[in-house]
Amino acid sequence: MNAKPNPPPSRSDRTLRERAEAVRSAAARHSPPSLDARLDVGRSLADQFDFAPFSVVDLARLYELTRQTDEYWGQIGSMPLCSNEDGQGFSVLTNLGRFAEIEEHRMAFLRDKCVAEISRRVPANDAERDEILCVRIMHEIDCNGRVDRLDAPTLLVEALKAWG
């Protein structure tokens, strides 16, 4: 038919070693940020959040939203578009994967700060006390799989006093 023959491979004056060095230096210039750097982004974004305008009930709902959103970003981060395989068979994050990971970390840090804030609040009534205890217990179970007496030594005693 009218197929054109493939052109011969281009000849380069550079050796294979020189071309490999050029590829390595280009990769070094464009290396992705480290995990610590990505964690710092999520942490700094969560640190900027102002909890002052929120009531105890608002904080309890915000905790639940951050919990669900964190799970959602984790699921997105597991999608094929979020990672590629490097030449050695390892999975590396794409730009989309790094973005999803930062958002997942941001939600986790925001959730931790939300729990810290709600724990500092003094309940105005029994309903607020119950919201505070529920959030603190859920967070302990999410983080430790149980209410850990080392992390929250008085939490179970407070719940027993409140709920008998």
Rank of each mutant, 00 (worst) to 15 (best):
A3Y: 11
A3N: 14
P5Y: 05
N6R: 09
N6T: 11
N6P: 08
P7Q: 14
P9H: 00
S10W: 07
S10V: 07
S12G: 07
S12N: 10
R14G: 05
R14K: 15
R17N: 12
R19E: 14
E21C: 07
A22I: 08
V23W: 06
R24Q: 13
S25I: 04
A28V: 09
A28H: 01
A28P: 04
R29N: 12
H30K: 07
S31T: 15
P33D: 02
P33W: 03
P33Q: 07
L35V: 11
A37D: 15
A37P: 01
L39C: 11
D40P: 00
V41D: 12
V41I: 13
G42A: 06
R43N: 09
L45G: 07
A46F: 01
D47G: 08
F51T: 06
A52N: 10
A52L: 10
D58C: 07
R61L: 11
R61C: 05
L62K: 03
Y63E: 05
R67Q: 11
R67V: 04
Q68H: 09
T69A: 13
T69C: 05
Y72Q: 07
W73A: 09
W73L: 04
W73H: 09
Q75P: 01
I76D: 03
I76K: 03
G77Q: 06
G77V: 00
S78G: 15
S78V: 01
C82G: 12
S83Q: 13
S83T: 10
N84Y: 05
D86I: 05
G87I: 07
Q88L: 12
S91Y: 05
V92P: 02
V92R: 06
V92Q: 09
L93T: 02
T94A: 02
T94Q: 01
L96E: 15
G97M: 01
G97Q: 03
R98S: 07
F99R: 15
F99P: 00
F99G: 11
E101F: 12
E101S: 13
E103Y: 06
E104N: 12
R106P: 00
A108G: 15
F109P: 03
F109N: 13
L110V: 03
D112Y: 10
C114F: 00
E117L: 04
E117D: 08
I118N: 06
A124H: 10
A124S: 08
N125H: 04
E128I: 00
E131C: 15
R136Y: 07
R136T: 04
I137S: 03
I137N: 02
E140H: 04
E140S: 13
E140Y: 00
E140D: 10
I141N: 07
I141D: 02
C143F: 08
C143M: 13
N144L: 02
N144H: 09
R146Q: 11
R146Y: 02
R146M: 06
V147I: 12
D148F: 02
D148Q: 01
L150P: 01
L150F: 06
D151F: 08
P153H: 01
A159G: 08
A159C: 05
L160E: 13
K161P: 04
A162M: 10
W163Q: 10
G164K: 05
G164I: 01
